[in-house]
Design a protein around this nucleic acid. Structure first.
Lengths: 326, 326
DNA sequence: TTGAAAGCGTTACCAG
DNA sequence: CTGGTAACGCTTTCAA
């Protein structure tokens, strides 16, 4: 049996309502009494019962995260960050890996203060929730709930634009993949930029990958480098792909950025063990998590917010990227 | 404001205690009444308030999972499986990615029925929990809580034993890594088998890897195949490493199993897109999850259970493995 | 400054 | 079979 405020009240010799106030750090309790009560609580290893508390106060200080596809490692970093930041705001994060519908039901039963949905496939409109919902990463879907997403199309677009600005003409993209809406946006941004900027298209310019692992980047780049006319710059769809690309480039004894420039799409501020720090384009993870938390706090306090928020990508150019040799 | 049993009672024209019984499918309520109440509940979109329920019934039908290292993809499959199976037992799974101490606190506050801890680093004895705890994957640590783990040492041992039985003498292991206890166990099993069975040791027999991705397996195997004396069989520390190994072997135009046999350590029943279905050794994921759930249910119902349970590995030999050519 | 008491949504028990 | 009511642990008035 776990210890309750009544147990504390008994051993501290006060009423249990006083204990409640003291633990809530209410100014209505004298300092010495408060200190004594807190000491007793610690000694007894008291943990407040969330059920009882949220039953009366209608607030649980808990955010429910719906994360049906736990395999996605990109998201795991994002969730870790969000979890940490929410902890600092004294919110608890609870994750469900059930499918959306069922996870929403669970969190409604648990009366969490808000729900954050990570998902790109299922629609959530069929289910109505008493708890406010915020979603990440499905800006293309129709939803009544606030959506936060990153502008992938613009990311690859401005990357190509930069490469063009510094003089590149033959630019390749690695990371086309079948039936993935989010990846398609990146390819689209690339293609649009190439076309709008009047840059040449050439065979095998866009390289398909099976998956988004380092190995896929390695294979794709090896294939690309085997063609007769080499591009002077490569844009990759992810950090892992870029790692693989680097391996393939080094293996071919090519030099970065002299022979070839490389920019990687990513949201992670890469803490790299690479000789060449990678140039990247994308919305920094911290901006995404900050925005998500901001919106969460707003919906909790009942503020009206815009339904769709597109975060703007940033270009971070390092020594992996330079003018092509004339 | 969410709908409560009192709302249902009002619109159904019964007392709220009858509603409670009806929703619990109690035999104490007449069928027509029950049906009517359930209909109203559905119409109103009623979701039971877990807080209120667990406050009085002391049972939440929820399992808390502590998973501080969400990056580990192997575990994600295991958790997904466990989640599904618990759902069938009408238990809800809630995950926390906080560090152990803090996650335990949260779940104690939430009065979950049991806590499952996935972790290999932190010790959990310092914190005492009112809720029963079950841990996975830290059998080497000292703990008072029940531990379920797989016998990694035995896995690699019996794999080598099998290869020896069918005539192999030059066997390599890919997957040594610095400072990882669990990986060390696998290497240990390999080394013990080689030594006990009187098999030859040779330079570069055990190949180190940076990480456990496909690319690392590819690199390591390429390195291995560049030596003068090739092994006739390879054992890899994971499925991903094996995938990389296969690539390197194919690239060298070697044939499996004629030139080289391969067995992979893994707990995943691989649904493979490989030409060669991989031979594997390890405890099947289903056995692990079943055991974990069994133990969870036991601790919830207060049954005494053994503190350490080692699951035995199984060898599944396919066409990736044959006698070496004489 | 402290204590008493009501009430949150539910279950469980006891009357009717 | 159905309804009334106490109780779960806590917060929050309202009195003292």
């Amino acid at each position: 049996m776990s210890v309750t405020i009544k147990d504390i009240a008994k051993t501290a010799g006060v009423s249990y309502s006083t204990v409640s106030k003291a633990l809530r750090d209410s100014p209505l309790v004298k300092k010495p009494t408060k200190d004594r009560i807190i000491a007793v609580a610690n000694e007894l290893g008291y943990q407040p019962n969330v059920a009882a508390r949220s039953l009366v106060s209608k607030r649980s200080f808990t955010i429910g995260v719906v994360w049906p596809t736990i395999e996605q490692t990109v998201l795991s970093t994002l969730i870790t960050t969000i979890n940490k930041k929410l902890e600092q705001l004294s919110y608890t994060t609870l994750i469900s890996i059930n499918e959306v519908e069922s996870a929403l039901k669970i969190f409604n039963r648990y009366q969490v203060d808000a729900i954050l949905v990570f998902d790109s496939s299922q629609s959530i409109d069929s289910y109505t929730s008493d708890v406010p919902i915020v979603t990440y990463g499905l800006a293309n879907k129709e939803t009544v709930y606030p959506i936060i997403d990153v502008n992938r199309l613009k990311s690859t677009y401005i990357a190509v634009q930069h490469l063009h600005n510094i003089g590149h003409r033959y630019i390749s993209y690695i990371g086309e993949v079948e039936n993935e809406e989010l990846q398609r946006e990146k390819v689209e941004g690339f293609t649009q930029a190439i076309s709008n900027l009047g840059l040449p298209s050439f065979p095998d310019q866009i390289v398909k990958v099976q998956d988004f692992d380092q190995y896929d980047g390695y294979e794709a780049t090896k294939q690309l480098l085997a063609t007769t006319k080499l591009p002077t710059a490569i844009l990759t769809g992810s950090h892992d792909l870029a790692r693989g690309a680097l391996q393939a480039i080094y293996e071919k004894k090519l030099s970065i950025p002299n022979d070839i420039s490389i920019i990687s799409y990513d949201n992670i501020t890469a803490i790299d063990r690479f000789d060449t720090p990678l140039s990247t384009v994308g919305v920094p993870l911290d901006k995404i998590s900050d925005k998500i938390i901001e919106v969460l706090m707003n919906v909790i306090s009942g503020k009206e917010i815009e339904t769709t928020i597109f975060l703007e990508p940033e270009l971070r150019i390092t020594t992996s990227c330079s003018n092509p040799l004339k």
